[in-house]
């Protein structure tokens, strides 16, 4: 199978797939769960949602179709994600004290494609409020997930997060995934 960015790039991002209500509900439940893991900082569970070669991706530009070898806001595999968790949770990560709180709402869930193996491409919208250093920041944008169907349910091959204000300027950096 070719890589996940290529599969996303070749998929029609305005298509609606004809799927069963059960599939729709289980994909929605998966997306809600991943948002809850982020909000509640359940890092082991968050990491377990990804395939071994999965990536979290926040492109710098909307037209981008590849994450590797080009600038990104986030482009992280499991090693990088583990590094970020270790670093942000370290007592000397002084800029992270007090730690932030996230609150996601995920909606407008549209399954774009379901292939013969049950793998899913799904797009959705999110809003996320971040409470950090006694202030609230708001992020909003769209998700596009490429999910692999496994015997243990869906796993993320690729999570693409496009912020509406991706070009900044950034008032402060993003330390956790949205």
């Amino acid at each position: 199978m070719s890589n996940a960015t290529e599969i996303l790039a070749n998929s029609d991002r305005f298509k609606f797939a004809d799927v069963t209500t059960k599939t729709q509900l289980s994909v929605e439940r998966f997306l809600h769960q991943q948002a809850e893991f982020l909000d509640e900082k359940r890092w082991d569970q968050w990491l377990s949602l990804f395939t071994a070669d999965g990536h979290y991706w926040m492109p710098a530009e909307e037209e981008q179709t590849e994450g590797e070898g080009v600038p990104n806001i986030f482009w992280e595999n499991l090693d990088m994600m583990k590094m970020r968790i270790r670093r942000n949770e370290h007592p000397q990560a002084h800029s992270q004290a007090p730690n932030n709180r996230l609150c996601h709402v995920v909606s407008n869930v549209i399954i774009e494609n379901q292939d013969n193996n049950g793998n899913i491409i799904v797009r959705s919208r999110f809003h996320c409020a971040e409470y950090f250093r006694y202030e609230v920041r708001n992020f909003t944008g769209k998700y596009r997930h490429y999910l692999e169907k496994t015997s243990n349910g869906y796993r993320i091959k690729l999570q693409r997060t496009d912020l509406v204000n991706r070009e900044g300027p950034y008032e402060y950096v993003l330390q956790w995934w949205l």
């Binding site: 806001i73 590094m83 002084h94 800029s95 950096v173 330390q175």
Partner: peptide, 22 residues
């Protein structure tokens, strides 16, 4: 160079985050 750009200078940097706060 891109690796440095990402790790040190991107909006998700774990390096400049601490500088900016200082």
């Amino acid at each position: 160079a891109l690796g440095y750009y990402y790790l040190v200078n991107s909006p998700s940097t774990m390096v400049n985050a601490d500088d900016l706060f200082n």
